[in-house]
Design a protein around this nucleic acid. Structure first.
Length: 880
DNA sequence: TGGTTCACG
DNA sequence: ACGTACGTGAACCAA
């Protein structure tokens, strides 16, 4: 016996849209309604096993059958664009599943379904309607069931005539009368005021229909209810009419057309991939992955021991995937547990103890001719170096590749990469080891399988990643930039930076003294002691005890941030003391204590980790310790830099920083003639901006004008807004708006570029840097003003910040190469976004002062010159 | 664990 | 009318 399933497309789409968070693909396409629709569809196909299936959609402008209808139906909430844009995708979905869809110009989906169920009923077909709309229950008959979606769309509840009687004590057609009396706010059916489900059911149980209720209104109990019914006769009748589903639309059903005999797994898989429905891929029937993935779960691997190592030596191939398992996050300290190795034919595990003794492996590892595929080759290189092992020949890094494909998914892990690009699944480390205090190294056989699996996942991911990199024009960036850079960074991390611990300790003692004094003074001024570091307690003291005005609030209470406190300074002397306390407290905890903790026991150096796959723009970041935010702006903090010294005698610290690199890049990519002119003439850019914006001669630019122009230039780089600028300069929004307007009239090329880049982002869903680095902006088409504005500013900022990151990365690769080729002893120590720091032996100082800017300035040719300032001294502090 | 604050570019 | 400048990491507090 056949089973005909009819789906109310619009109802399901709406339900799904509002039930699920607003998901989107990496290209910014919203997919939540499609995902919900898909889940529902898979469930229906599995549970109902339809032989015939069809989906109905609303189409065109609905022709209202009563003039009064217009008022109510017209008052419906407009469909948000995030949902509208998903309707074409849902049609694609149905096509992928080979499911017929039906639309009729001028009719709603429920009219079509009402008509078709009537025809099906007359021909005695077993029929099920899938909808989220309770009105549809009126269609239920001996042959027709209605399945209502529950909890969004994840569950369905089936209604036959019996269930309707059980639940409401009504016949299916009386559902219309029920709605007529109680109304339905979501559908703009008014109903009778004061009548809800309870009253409506009571009335219907007694009288049977809206008409009978109205006819017998005198007998209805309750004075107020009688009155409401009398006064709303028209409304009740209209509501009933509105709730009645049309059953005679001009639709002819040919059941044969809707026959369903399964879907083509390949086209569904392709669609899921496009939608990035990764978790659903395994549910696709009849395609190779499902059948095979079960088998491939039976993963096999071998453990290499001293007894069998000779036999496995032949399995060390080129290329081969390798994963180095370490016990801990920080690879400068982590013990090595073992190695996973894999190629197409085999997966191996070698414990650290066995590996040390396995000569063939060590030779293979250090042989640059033997290609290796890695997950974070920098980690492997540095981690192994600490244990005296060399790894060479890294030729593809899935960690970097995955970052380039989607920088938003920061810090990819082997399990996440496997889930996206490989066939086998890898357990997240956390699940194997446990986290926090519960962390425990598992049994040997569990560990060896896990590590071998990681290597296999790397092996399987490479071809997929290669293809996707190629498609997105990112292969060059990996092979010529991020890949080589990771080895440069490895050298820098391994070498480390020498820190003078005694100097830090001295400074710490001094800070302790000062902080003690400040604490006493603050307690005295407040008239009580409290935890100054607690924003909550501080807020109570300032805003309750001392009754200072609240200028800004955070989610949790009144703000005590520095910019607010500065404005409060005139009210009370405690404010300045608190600001100083905060400043010094930060220096002590983060830079004295924090940095001291990171000094490596035997080297007396700090070895940071430069994270190459964290930021959304392509910049590096630095952790454990972060050496990219060592104080410089305030003199007290800047002194911290006195503790950063060369690691060898008779050496200097040399620092080289790009001057205005971001504005120069803006000049290049916008092509703004005025900005280009300014840089070609090597002018002070903020002064030049002030001249142009304020219309004065160079000698008439005041320091205030220059300061304001500088803020405007910053704002431009960040994706300017009048509000942001007004906050920064402490001026009104109107004044800030005027500045921006004047800036754009002088730098019209910049204005044009900003408009174009936002347009381009809206069109493509992403923006790129000069070297094709890509950042997706899923919110760029959002109807939420905040989200969209944020994405727009990001669209303007990322090509600038990201290109600057590209440039200095190129410079680092060339610099390292140059140092090696020239056989210099100078070492590159740090990168701080627009600055490179070196340690340089005395006899190389002269050469390096020429070489470093030469390499940096010529890293990439732009329409404006790049400019680099170089300074050196006996400490980082003195390199100014 | 999330929120706040603050150090840097 | 909406309410923020872009990108990071670390320390600390309060649940």
């Amino acid at each position: 016996m056949g089973h005909f399933v009819l789906i109310d497309g619009n109802s399901i789409a709406n339900r799904a849209f509002y039930a699920l968070p607003l998901l989107s693909t990496s290209a910014g396409l919203h997919t939540n309604a499609v995902l919900g629709f898909t889940t529902m569809l898979l469930k229906v196909l599995e549970e109902l096993q339809p032989t015939h299936i069809m989906v109905a959609f609303d189409a065109g402008k609905v022709v209202f059958r009563h003039s009064e209808f217009a008022e109510y139906k017209g008052g419906r909430k407009k469909t948000p664009p995030e949902l509208s844009e998903q309707f074409p995708l849902m049609r694609e979905l149905l096509d992928a599943f080979s499911i017929k869809r039906f639309e009729l110009e001028g009719y709603e989906a429920d009219d079509i379904i009402g008509t078709l169920t009537k025809q099906a009923d007359e021909q005695n077909w077993k029929t099920t309607v899938i909808t989220g709309d309770k009105d549809m229950l009126q269609l239920v008959s001996d042959h027709v069931s209605v399945a209502l979606t529950r909890k969004g769309v994840s569950e369905i509840e089936l209604y036959t005539p019996q269930e309707i009687t059980d639940k409401y004590g009504l016949e299916p057609l009386q559902i219309i009368d029920l709605k007529g009396l109680m109304g339905d706010t979501s559908d703009n059916i008014p109903g009778v005021p004061g009548v809800g489900e309870k009253t409506a059911l009571k009335l219907l149980h007694e009288y049977g229909s809206v008409e009978q209720v109205l006819e017998n209104v005198d007998r209805v109990s309750g004075k107020k209810l009688q009155e409401n019914l009398r006064e709303n006769v028209d409304k009740a009748k209209l509501s009933k009419a509105l709730a009645t589903i049309m059953r005679d639309a001009p639709v002819e059903l040919n059941l044969g057309d809707t026959a369903y005999d399964g879907y083509d797994g390949a086209s569904v898989t392709e669609f899921f991939k496009k939608m990035e429905f990764k978790s659903l891929l395994s549910k696709v029937k009849g395609t190779a992955p499902t059948a095979q993935s079960e088998e491939k779960q039976a993963f096999s691997f071998e453990v290499v021991t001293s007894a069998n190592a000779d036999a496995f030596a032949a399995n060390l191939t080129s290329p081969m995937a390798i994963y180095v398992e370490m016990d801990g996050e920080n690879y400068h300290h982590a013990p090595i547990l073992g190695f996973g190795l894999a190629n197409e034919d085999i997966a191996l595990y070698v414990s650290w103890d066995e590996a040390k003794e396995w000569e063939a492996f060590r030779n293979w590892l250090g042989d640059a001719g033997q290609e290796k595929w890695t997950f974070d080759g920098k980690r492997d290189t540095v981690g192994l170096a600490w244990h005296g092992l060399d790894i060479k020949g890294i030729n593809f890094d899935v960690y970097l590749a995955s970052y380039l494909l989607n920088a938003a998914e920061s810090n990819p892990t082997v399990d996440s990469i496997a889930a996206q690009y490989a066939q086998i699944r890898v357990l997240p480390d956390e699940e194997l080891y446990g986290k926090g205090a519960k962390r425990l190294i598992p049994e040997t056989d569990e560990l060896s399988e896990h590590v071998a699996k990681k290597a296999k996942a790397i092996w399987q991911s490479v071809p997929v990643l290669r293809e996707q990199l190629e498609e997105n024009d990112l292969s060059g960036l990996l092979n010529d930039l991020e890949g080589p850079l990771s080895l440069v960074l490895a050298e820098m991390e391994k070498h480390g930076v020498r820190v003078n611990a005694e100097r830090l300790a001295q400074m710490g003692d001094e800070l302790d003294r000062k902080l003690e004094e400040l604490t006493a003074k603050i307690y005295d001024l407040a008239g009580m002691s409290f935890n100054i570091n607690s924003p909550k307690q501080l807020g109570e003291v300032l805003y309750e005890k001392l009754d200072l005005p609240v200028l800004k609030k955070t989610k949790t209470g009144p703000s005590t941030s520095a910019d607010v406190l500065e404005k409060l300074a005139p009210y009370h002397p405690i404010i300045d003391t608190i600001l100083t306390f905060r400043q010094l407290g930060k220096l002590r905890s983060t830079y004295i204590e924090g940095l001291t903790k990171e000094i490596h026991g035997n080297t007396s150096k700090v070895h940071t980790i430069f994270n190459q796959a964290t930021t959304a723009t392509g910049r590096l970041s630095s952790t454990d310790p972060n050496l990219q935010n060592i104080p410089i702006r305030m003199e007290e903090g800047r002194k911290i830099r006195e503790a950063f010294i060369p690691s060898e005698a008779d050496c200097y610290i040399l620092a080289a920083d790009y001057s205005q690199i971001e504005l120069r890049i803006l000049a290049h990519i916008s092509g703004d003639e005025n900005l280009i002119d300014a840089f070609r003439k090597n002018m002070d850019i903020h002064t030049r901006t002030a001249m142009d914006v304020f219309g004065v001669a160079e000698q008439d630019v005041t320091s205030l004008m220059r300061r304001q122009a500088k803020a405007v230039n910053f704002g431009i780089v960040y994706g300017i807004s009048d509000y942001g600028l007004s906050q920064n300069l402490n001026i009104t929004r109107k004044e800030a708006g005027d500045f921006i307007e004047r800036y754009f009239s002088v730098f019209s090329g910049v204005k044009r570029w900003m408009e174009e880049i936002v347009q381009q982002a809206k069109q493509d869903g992403y923006v790129t840097t000069l070297l094709q680095r890509r950042r997706y902006l899923p919110d760029i088409r959002s109807s939420n003003f905040n989200l969209r504005s944020f994405a727009e500013r990001t669209a303007m900022n990322t090509p600038i910040q990201g290109t600057a990151a590209d440039v200095i990365k190129l410079a680092m690769i060339r610099m390292q190469k140059s140092l090696e080729e020239k056989g210099l002893k100078s070492r590159m120590l740090l990168q701080v976004h627009d600055e490179l720091v070196f340690e340089v032996p005395q006899d190389e100082l002269e050469l390096m002062q020429e070489l470093v800017p030469e390499v940096m300035e010529n890293a990439l040719e732009l329409d404006v010159p790049l400019k680099v300032d170089v300074n050196y001294g006996r400490s980082w502090y003195d390199a100014k």
